[in-house]
């Protein structure tokens, strides 16, 4: 994740495919002296994905937890229900996914959940997804100089009942989008989503020559279509990224509440 676009052979020596395979001491690999200092972060791998529909939103994440080449566990969820009235979150309407450093992810999730519960206590109503989105941004920015090393995605239904997906960088910069992939395999999944959700590079055949050609009309996908896309995206990511696999956790947010599904992924 550290070097999303460092595939340039000039920047890190001759290479053919992944240049940022995990190394135990990155500096040593380049023959530099290593300063012995406690590193408060680690990358626990994994990938997440969220897609907004007309009246639903889907958030998915794999369940593998890694560190370097080790698989710590095959089931460690990174998609969570947020802001329910009880500990089991069965009446929650907002979903948060966190990927990156798992301990920071847990801390952030608990803080946001506590903030949502405090909001409910003070205002006597559940927090809207756009309010929670803003609150999450503030939380991340509060730790601007010792950041939560996580790529967060928040999803729910907005005040009009439409699917809403908010994506964040580790220091709280955020944006509402139709879809977003995060984590280790984000660069593998994101172009696929551009193509299949936002219909990028798709045109109407025979609609014109050159610049006159018309783009395919953008409209939100059906839930069945989105579920297939999510599975296909993860099957692709599992095949080509060692930190992604084991299981796929999927949360579907509708006006009826949040459904949770689990599907097995390849465990190799």
């Amino acid at each position: 994740m550290s070097a999303l676009f460092s595939q340039n052979p000039l920047m890190n020596g001759p290479n053919y495919s992944f240049s940022d395979t995990p190394v135990s001491h990155p500096n040593e690999a380049h023959g530099e002296l290593r300063e012995h200092r406690f590193n408060p972060y680690t990358d626990n791998g994994g990938s997440t994905l969220a897609i907004a529909g007309a009246d639903f939103a889907i958030v998915a994440g794999d369940t593998r937890l890694t560190s370097g080449y080790s698989i710590h566990t095959r089931y460690s969820p990174k998609v969570f229900k947020i802001g329910g009235t009880t500990a089991d979150q069965k009446d929650a309407t907002i979903v948060l996914s966190v990927v990156g450093f798992a301990a920071d992810g847990t801390a952030l999730r608990e803080r946001l959940d506590a903030a949502c519960k405090m909001y409910r206590y003070r205002h006597g109503k559940p927090m809207s997804v756009n309010a929670a989105a803003k609150r999450l941004s503030t939380m991340l920015y509060q730790k601007r100089f010792f950041p939560y090393y996580v790529y967060a995605i928040l999803a729910g239904l907005d005040e009009e009942g439409k699917g809403a997906v908010y994506s964040y960088d580790p220091v709280g910069s955020y944006e509402r989008e139709m879809c977003r992939a995060g984590g280790a395999a984000a660069s593998l999944i994101m172009p696929f989503l551009d193509n299949q959700v936002n219909f990028k590079n798709q045109h109407i055949p025979g609609s014109g020559e050159g610049h006159a050609i018309q783009e395919r009309e953008k409209k939100p996908l059906l839930r069945e279509q989105v579920e297939i896309l999510v599975k296909d995206a993860f099957d692709g990511a599992v095949e080509r990224h060692i930190e992604v696999g084991d299981g796929l956790q999927m949360m579907v947010i509708t006006s009826q509440g949040v459904e949770e599904h689990y599907l097995p992924l390849k465990k190799d």
Binding site: P40, Y41, T42, N44, L65, S67, S70, H72, T73, R74, Y75, S76, F101, A102, A103, T106, A107
Partner: peptide, 22 residues
């Protein structure tokens, strides 16, 4: 379950730390 010096937590039917994980 396991907890390490970074605060990372996870649980699994079997766990091992250090060389045990390999």
């Amino acid at each position: 379950a396991s907890a390490d010096l970074l605060g990372t937590t996870y649980s699994s039917p079997s766990l091992a730390s250090g060389y045990g994980s390999m």
